[in-house]
């Protein structure tokens, strides 16, 4: 499976993270998105006329929507991540998968504006981002009351992977995460998962490892 990837793109990171969590090995093809705008070049436009990345290629299957990639990776390697045990759970997964596009359009666009100088009405984007974070916080509070740590169940699902990257990187776009204690706990729960990988802007949870000591004789 080949992923056309940009290391700073939260949508590409969704696919990388899902693959890491489910133990799928991806063949990564780096794309010079910035500054080279390679995603708008002929080779990638032939694969995805929309001119966006990520693109996931597996045989003659070409996926250009990150949510579809999450479904594909989970269904192939670890179906429990699909979160379709019950009608309620399946609906919640779909609810948050769709919601995740609002995160891309608000927090993601604010981040591109603040970091890579892309155009946009920054005040509106930040305000929309804050509104989305409040919805997520309220949803997580309710899940916590139900005794569930993740968005659709007490186990992580593709819904969590779909929402996590743009949320965790909200500060890159000038949107603070300080006011959201439940998002903070949820983010830590995701970052503590077996197989979790970071992307730039999301630091390692150093507390997961005890303070390492240097063995005598080791340099």
């Amino acid at each position: 499976m080949k992923l056309y990837d940009y290391v700073l793109s939260p949508s590409c990171y969704k696919a990388r993270l899902m693959a890491a969590l489910t133990g799928v090995k991806l063949d990564i093809r780096p794309v010079d998105f910035h500054p080279g705008a390679e995603h708008r070049g002929p080779e990638l436009m032939a694969l995805n006329p929309a001119g966006s990345i990520p693109i996931l290629e597996d045989g003659d299957l070409i996926l250009t929507e990150s949510s579809a990639m999450l479904v594909y990776l989970a269904a192939k390697a670890a179906p429990q991540w699909l979160g379709n045990d019950t009608a309620l759970q399946a609906a919640r997964v779909q609810q948050w998968l769709s919601f995740s596009h609002r995160l891309t359009g608000s927090l993601g666009a604010a981040r591109l504006h603040e970091m890579l100088l892309r155009p946009g009405d920054i005040a509106t984007l930040q305000w929309q981002g804050m509104a989305a974070l409040r919805e997520l916080e309220a949803g997580l509070v309710e899940q916590h009351i139900r005794g569930q740590r993740f968005l659709a169940s007490d186990r992580p699902t593709i819904a969590d992977v779909a929402c996590f990257p743009y949320v965790a990187l909200a500060p890159d776009g000038g949107v603070s995460l300080d006011p959201y204690p439940s998002i903070r706990l949820w983010s830590r729960a995701i970052r503590s998962l077996e197989g979790f990988i970071e992307m730039p802007g999301i630091h390692r949870l150093h507390e997961l490892k005890p303070e390492p000591v240097l063995d005598a004789g080791e340099a």
Partner: peptide, 22 residues
């Protein structure tokens, strides 16, 4: 190393610093 890889590596490093600097 491919040019895109070299760019990604340096952008990775700098973006890790950015969240400190801000």
């Amino acid at each position: 190393t491919s040019m895109a890889d070299l760019i990604h590596f340096q952008q990775t490093i700098f973006l890790q610093d950015r969240s400190i600097l801000e």
